[in-house]
Simulated assay, not measured.
Amino acid sequence: MDKTITWEQFTAVDLRVGTIVQAEPFPEARKPAYKLWVDVGELGIKKSSAQITKRYTAEELVGQQVLCVTNFPAKQIGPWMSEVLVTGFEDEDGNIVLAQPQANVSNGKRLI
């Protein structure tokens, strides 16, 4: 374990589920990536960029639920403004596997 955090520090991270409603290639990105639009319920449709082209096609991403950090400041990625961080794990080859709920839940629900 790298560092112990407090419960308050953990709860400060706003992790919510959202559904990818649109995905398209992001050719301007330095590394292969997609532009994503994620429906995060009451927070609305938020934009993100994700380097997940090795494991996923843009078409298969639409409709997938993902776990997002919603309270980071927006980040400029080339010409794209990313508003949420879509989370995932590195596999053995360094490719990202999306963090997803095992069953569908309402968009915007918070991880507790």
Rank of each mutant, 00 (worst) to 15 (best):
V105Q: 14
W37H: 05
K75T: 13
T87A: 03
A50V: 02
G94A: 05
G44H: 08
K35P: 00
Q64R: 13
F72G: 04
T6Q: 08
R110M: 02
V21W: 11
K3N: 08
G44V: 06
L98C: 10
Q64N: 06
G63D: 12
L67Q: 04
K109E: 13
V13C: 12
V105I: 15
R16C: 06
G41V: 10
V13F: 09
M81E: 14
A33R: 01
T70A: 10
T6N: 08
N71T: 04
R55K: 12
E92R: 04
D39R: 12
P25F: 00
T4R: 14
G88C: 04
L111R: 06
L98N: 14
T57Q: 01
V69A: 08
L43C: 06
A74D: 15
E42N: 14
D14T: 03
D93W: 04
E90G: 02
Q22R: 08
A33P: 01
A23N: 05
R110Q: 05
M1C: 13
I45G: 00
Q65V: 03
N71I: 03
D14G: 05
L43P: 10
A74R: 13
D91I: 00
F89R: 08
P79I: 02
P73R: 04
E28G: 03
P32H: 07
F10D: 11
I77F: 15
W7F: 12
E24F: 00
E24D: 05
A50M: 04
A29T: 01
V21L: 10
C68Y: 06
W80D: 02
A29N: 10
P25W: 00
T70C: 14
V21I: 13
A23R: 01
V40I: 15
N71A: 07
I20G: 02
I20T: 04
Q9R: 04
P25Q: 06
Q22K: 10
I112W: 12
G94Y: 06
W80I: 01
D91V: 01
G44N: 08
F26H: 01
K46L: 09
S106M: 10
I45R: 07
L85R: 05
R30N: 11
K75D: 14
N71Q: 11
L67W: 07
D91A: 03
V38K: 15
V86F: 08
E90P: 13
L67E: 05
F72I: 08
A103E: 15
I5C: 10
Q64H: 09
Q100F: 11
V38P: 15
I96V: 13
I77R: 07
V86Q: 07
Y56E: 11
P101E: 12
V84N: 12
I96H: 03
V62I: 12
